[in-house]
Amino acid sequence: MKQRCEACDFPLTLTDSDFCCERCGAHYVRQAHCPECHQPLQVLKACGATDYFCPHGHGLISKKRVEFSR
């Protein structure tokens, strides 16, 4: 499902830190969710790398599998 801007209903673009609307410039915080249990993930940052950990028993989650929502 494509995320849409609340202000102008334009599709949002996912950046490294948030969702951004190219039409009106609005920014929205992004939240990483586990693809297994759909619960929020812990974001682990060290030495320039970003990893995702599910505290609900699914361990480390690959960046390719993370579900992002706002």
Rank of each mutant, 00 (worst) to 15 (best):
R30S: 03
C37G: 04
G48M: 07
A7P: 06
R23Q: 11
G25P: 00
S62P: 01
Q42F: 10
A49S: 15
E36I: 15
R70S: 09
V29L: 11
F10D: 04
F19S: 06
Q42N: 13
P35K: 09
L12P: 00
P40K: 12
R23K: 13
L14Y: 01
H33K: 11
A32W: 04
C20K: 08
A26R: 15
L60S: 10
F53T: 01
E6Q: 14
F53W: 07
C34W: 04
S17D: 10
H27Q: 11
L12C: 05
A49R: 15
T13G: 12
G25F: 02
K63P: 09
R70D: 00
C21R: 02
S17C: 14
F19G: 01
A49F: 14
H27T: 06
Q42C: 07
L60P: 06
P35C: 08
C54M: 07
G25T: 08
L12M: 07
K45W: 08
G25E: 00
I61Y: 02
K64I: 09
D18F: 10
E36A: 13
G48P: 02
D51K: 15
Q42D: 12
Q42E: 12
L44Q: 12
F10N: 10
V29R: 14
C54N: 06
L60N: 12
K2H: 07
Y52F: 07
T50Q: 05
H33F: 08
C20A: 11
C21V: 03
R30N: 06
E22H: 13
D9I: 09
D16E: 13
L14H: 06
P35T: 06
C24R: 05
R70Q: 08
H38E: 13
P55F: 07
P11W: 12
P40S: 09
T50G: 04
C20Y: 08
V29H: 10
M1F: 12
D51H: 14
Y28C: 04
C24S: 02
C37F: 01
E36R: 09
R70A: 09
P35S: 06
C8R: 08
C47E: 13
E67H: 15
F19L: 00
T13N: 15
P55A: 07
K2S: 06
R65K: 15
G25L: 02
G57C: 00
L44V: 10
A46F: 13
H33W: 05
L12Y: 03
M1W: 09
F19R: 09
S62H: 13
P40G: 10
P40N: 08
L44N: 13
V43T: 11
R65W: 12
G59D: 02
T50R: 11
E22V: 04
F10G: 03
E22Y: 08
C34H: 05
T15A: 00
A46I: 08
P55E: 00
F68D: 01
Y28S: 05
C5P: 01
C21H: 00
Q42A: 08
Y28V: 01
S69R: 15
C47F: 10
G48E: 05
L14K: 14
E36Q: 11
R30F: 02
H56T: 07
C24W: 03
Q39P: 02
V66L: 04
I61S: 05
C34G: 01
S17A: 14
C8N: 05
E6L: 15
R4V: 15
V43P: 05
A7M: 11
F53A: 03
L12R: 11
G57V: 00
F10M: 10
D18I: 09
R70L: 08
E36N: 12
A7V: 09
E36K: 10
